[in-house]
Design a protein around this nucleic acid. Structure first.
Lengths: 228, 228
DNA sequence: TACACCGATATGTCTGCACATAATCCCGCC
DNA sequence: GGCGGGATTATGTGCAGACATATCGGTGTA
């Protein structure tokens, strides 16, 4: 009858979009659909599981499978390495280290990393270039307990590349927001103080402890894009 | 030996994070792993497929399964309905319609919707409140071909709610960026012109045609958050 | 040397079956 | 009428086997 679970997924999605099964409605059981499509239940299950992962369906044991009420719900966005993002635009990537120091971080940083206040951390500030234009102003705090002391050598790599290659990464969180350019941002990116900048704050963790907190301030005009 | 494919996924992930299999390395075949874990190949396959979907592994027929070079790569973020987002903060939601007109959109909007220039569209501008504070300034263009003419009645619902309930949605794209508050943003959100605002541009499509393009300007301080 | 072809191989998918698990439904009891 | 507990039921997971398909690598030929 069909040629694989993707065909079934497409057909179920078509019926939902055609309002054959409206939002909130319960759709037929896997067993009924497998009879209709002339395939094994596992094949139907695969298709429905995929739609559930995409947020189109909601499934519960015994209760059955329902069409989600709010279809526009979940987006996956790729977070490329900065170097790759620049090179994908056909520009050459480079970066310059602006500062490498050991400092006591501001209280919010200590708290977010779940470290005691007043503990000094290594702070790296650098500037990423796309061609000869400044692209991202990066301000990073590193936990010395994870990277093996306050002043290890990254062997010529950027801190990010070194971390990716050397520290087992377990989890993290990201926030996106708009901020006015600080004096440091303004100087680094060659824009007036107060210019709206797209800012990403990222914290990563091993299973036990915080690894790093980084703030990325993108040059004006940056747009993060994804499809649904 | 184990208690399900999630155990296997966890163990494979652990070995990757422990650098037992470093970035770029090829891991054992499904068949070898199934022997090691004492389970069926399908069970290992399930675990590895899931890790591949999360961006941790890369798989190719015959070539085998490799550890991805850049592990921090994919984030899924939930895009709640505005009403739900406000209510989750424990504030009461309301909205006010500021404008409902038929206008010729600016050229970039026509192009992005893949409509001929100079075709008039319905434009709705409204303001979403969290409690008594303005939260989002929304500027929406609607394709009359999809909503059944230039001036249908949304029966008291917000345009978004009406669309979710009545128009079969197929695909879309989203961009996030930082913009300076326009005069209209400033008046609506009660902030000075030029204030950095987090802006979301969303376009949705049926299988055939564009449905709507909407620009959401969030009040200052908004942060979009997700975990990895 | 360069290219076309072909076998080997790892993943991709499907089937048919079985049992586990969660949640609902309904029956019987108080 | 209200409530507790067990039967029912739809999904979740697992297994063994089979075939499909992409692709890597090597072999033979122009």
């Amino acid at each position: 009858m069909s040629r694989g679970w993707e065909t079934i997924r497409a057909d179920v999605l078509r019926r939902i979009q055609a309002r054959e099964w409206g939002p909130g409605a319960t759709i037929p059981t896997e067993e009924a659909l497998s009879r209709e499509f002339g395939c094994a239940r596992a094949t139907v299950s695969r298709a429905l599981r995929d739609l559930a992962a995409a947020g189109v369906l909601e499934r519960r044991r015994k209760a059955g499978t329902r069409v989600a009420l709010a279809p526009v719900r979940r987006a996956t966005l790729d977070i490329p390495l900065i170097r790759q993002e620049v090179e994908r635009r056909g520009q050459s990537y480079s970066y310059r280290l602006l500062r490498d120091a050991v400092e006591v971080p501001p209280l919010p940083v200590s708290l977010h990393l779940r470290l005691p206040p007043q503990v000094p951390l290594r702070r790296l500030i650098c500037l990423h270039f796309a061609g000869d234009q400044p692209f991202i102003h990066e301000d990073r705090w590193l936990n010395p307990a994870v990277i093996g002391g306050l002043r290890p050598d990254f062997a010529g790599q950027s801190a990010n590349a070194w971390l990716v290659a050397n520290v087992p990464f377990a989890s993290g969180d990201i926030t996106f927001c708009a901020e006015a350019a600080t004096a440091a941002d303004a100087a680094a990116l060659s824009v007036p103080v107060g210019t709206p900048l797209f800012v990403v704050d990222r914290t990563t963790w091993t299973a036990q402890a915080a690894i790093t907190r980084v703030r990325l301030a993108y040059a004006p005009g940056y747009r993060m894009h994804t499809t649904l």
